[in-house]
Design a protein around this nucleic acid. Structure first.
Length: 479
RNA sequence: GGCGCCGUGCCCAAGUGGUUAAGGGAGGGGCCUGCAAAGCCCCCAUUCGUCGGUUCGAAUCCGACCGGCGCCUCCA
């Protein structure tokens, strides 16, 4: 079997064959840094990370680029007043640039907590205004643009294949069904490449251009930056399903009009995380950030594990009950890893887990093979996780080999198994140890009420006391 | 209005024509324990929104209906 991915272009599973056999040019839509990423946004980045790790697991060399949008659609469409960024700027006394920097840093702090590998390049839109202007000029030279009302528009009537990705039938689209039509547009589907005037009068970031002082339309940045860092043709471009009909459709129109080549070979789109009343959005409330979860006692990796339990093309319903289930399950996995470590002893020396091979005849191979084939089947992480469980529950697999195989799986899953410390290496504060001794004394005197009280105290401090045959054992509760 | 997605046990969620419908959580039973907790073992859907149809055979294909949702906006 070989890797198969669902290509939005064609809406079918296709065998993955990169343009260049040994390397993969991967572009993923990044964050807009005017606010924190919410956990729905973060699901998308977990998906891209699993995709990238899967490619690397199968020995592809991946070049991954992700944009940082810090201009162009910084305003919130539902906000009829002041540009949010401007307002935050005024309230905080910081510049819009500082705010973008702040949320960019917050974004990467969150993705790091989620064990998401950083892209090789994370270019900021504001650093690539000249590239965007150049691209717009090339479109202009080829006759794909017009100017009206101070803005430069892309004329979709000049691009016959417009809408192919989304399967749009332009004649049947109901223009203005949800939004007022911009009267400057020749066709409702036309979109702005460069603004000098817009409904957002207080746009804070502006640059000089051949068309006047203004700022770029949103779609142009991805075309400009992806081509700068990855060339005119990409293997994979991913993003949320919401981008199919507008953003990615427009990207294709921009890029292919200029190059005359197919822009992207495989388009991958992830479904939404949904709340009880529908998708999570920045304006509708129900806005949960990763910090919200960690403040409530969840680990970031619990959320990552939660994301892996559903296929990326399925909506995933978020609830704290479901997250609790994920946390319990992940703790149990970690616990099994610990148990296996103590069983394996010196058979599994600490160090680089990738250096510990799993022998070809090991019963662990069965699980690794199933794991690989689940990933090859359009990144079926729910099944891949089930293989990890099968491996860890199978007593016929020697501990050292089970560990090596589990850590190999964690190369893709990224749920923190590699960092599980051996029990004996876990440091327990002296205060806790002293309480444990005190409890032992109470138990000897059969003062069980006192003993139980101390146990509760220790538990509140984050440690669990296990009364083994050989004496009490203390474990960190949350690890 | 157009395009598209979903409805599987108490909960989350795989499975998309064929032996016993993954896995996890919760729950029940057991081991262990002074009792717990943690851990481990076992159990837990003749059934896949409803009603028809196609087929030797359907959760899986087709149709209708009910229910939920997404996109057509500078949303992951």
């Amino acid at each position: 079997m070989s890797l198969k991915l669902h290509n939005t272009l064609g809406r079918e599973l296709q065998a993955f064959e990169p343009i260049d056999p040994d390397s993969v040019r991967l572009y993923s839509c990044g964050p807009t840094v005017y606010n924190y990423a919410h956990i729905g946004n973060l699901r998308a980045y977990v998906f891209v990370d699993v995709l990238r790790r899967t490619l690397e697991y199968f020995d592809y060399r991946v070049q991954h680029v992700m944009n940082i949008t810090d201009v162009g659609h910084l305003s919130d469409d539902g906000d009829h007043g002041e540009d949010k960024l401007v307002r935050r700027s005024r309230e905080s006394g910081n510049s819009v640039w500082d705010i973008a920097a702040y949320y960019t840093e917050a974004f990467f702090r969150h993705t790091t907590q989620l064990n998401i590998r950083s892209p090789h390049h994370a270019p900021r839109a504001t650093d690539h205004i000249p590239e965007m202007i150049t691209l717009i000029q090339r479109l202009e030279e080829k006759g794909y643009t017009y100017t009206a009302g101070g803005n430069v528009y892309y004329d979709i009537s000049r691009f016959p294949r417009y809408g192919a990705l989304a399967g749009l039938d332009l004649s049947s689209l109901k223009a203005g069904a949800r939004v007022d039509v911009d009267s400057n547009k020749r066709n409702p589907g036309d979109f702005v490449l460069w603004f000098t005037r817009s409904k957002f009068e207080k746009q804070a970031m502006v640059w000089d251009s051949p068309w006047g002082r203004g700022y770029p339309g949103w779609h142009i940045e991805c075309s400009a930056m992806s081509m700068k860092y990855l060339g005119e043709q990409l293997d994979i471009h991913c993003g949320g399903v919401d981008h199919i009909s507008v953003h990615h459709t427009n990207e294709i129109a921009q890029a292919e009009a200029v190059t005359g080549k197919q822009y992207v070979k495989y388009w991958l789109h992830n479904e939404f995380l949904v709340m009880d009343r529908g998708k999570m959005s920045k304006s509708e409330g129900g806005f949960l950030t990763l910090d919200t979860l960690t403040e409530r006692g969840y680990e970031a990796l619990d959320y990552r594990y939660f994301c892996l339990l559903a296929h990326y093309r399925s909506e995933l319903r978020f609830s704290f009950d479901a997250l609790d289930a994920a946390r319990s399950a992940r703790r149990r996995i970690v616990s099994r890893i610990r148990t296996r470590m103590s069983e394996a002893g010196s058979d599994f020396p600490p160090g680089d887990p990738d250096q510990t091979p799993v022998s070809d005849t090991s019963p662990a191979q069965r699980y690794l093979a199933a794991f690989a084939s689940d990933l090859e089947d359009d990144l079926n992480t729910p099944r891949a996780v089930a293989q990890l469980w099968g491996l860890l529950k199978d007593d016929d697999v020697p501990a050292a080999e089970a560990l090596a195989a589990a850590l190999r799986m964690d190369d893709v899953l990224g749920i923190g198994l590699a960092s599980v410390q051996r029990e004996e290496n876990t440091s327990v504060p002296a205060e806790v140890l002293s309480l444990v001794q005190e409890r032992q004394a109470a138990r000897t005197e059969r003062d069980f009420a006192r003993a139980d009280q101390i146990r509760d105290t220790v538990r509140e401090m984050g440690y669990v006391i296990v009364d083994n045959a050989g004496g009490p054992e203390v474990k960190r509760h949350d690890a």
